[in-house]
Amino acid sequence: MHELSMADAMVKTILDAAEKNQAEKILEATIEIGKLTMLNPDQLKFLLEVLTEDTLLEDSEIHIEEIPVEIECKSCDYKGLTNVDDSDHYLIIVKCPQCGERDLKVTSGRECNVKNIKIEKSD
């Protein structure tokens, strides 16, 4: 799995934004991960801890928010959430929860988004 390269890209994105905003401290950072990305949040969290050592992010609180899966059905016009069954969570992208048809588009659940940070700076 590619948690490491993703974590690396996220840390760079955050530090970049912090620098642009003249942050002296990063208090919090929020990351959104789609449930279909196959990224393991626990592993990601661990890697973020390792990668942020000796950076402005070292003592920050990093929140990882999971984004649920949404689909659009081309057969019945169903739009919205699908239930995630953890034992077989793929089924959701295969079958419309309303009509059971298979012609679906995944509209959300594949994000890997650095959302925002809370920083401290001098004014």
Binding site: M6, I117, K121, S122
Partner: peptide, 16 residues
């Protein structure tokens, strides 16, 4: 003086 600011980033690595 220090102030606390929220900075929107919204940078999606997949979108990039």
């Amino acid at each position: 003086m220090h102030k606390i600011a929220e900075v929107e980033i919204q940078h999606d690595i997949m979108v990039a």
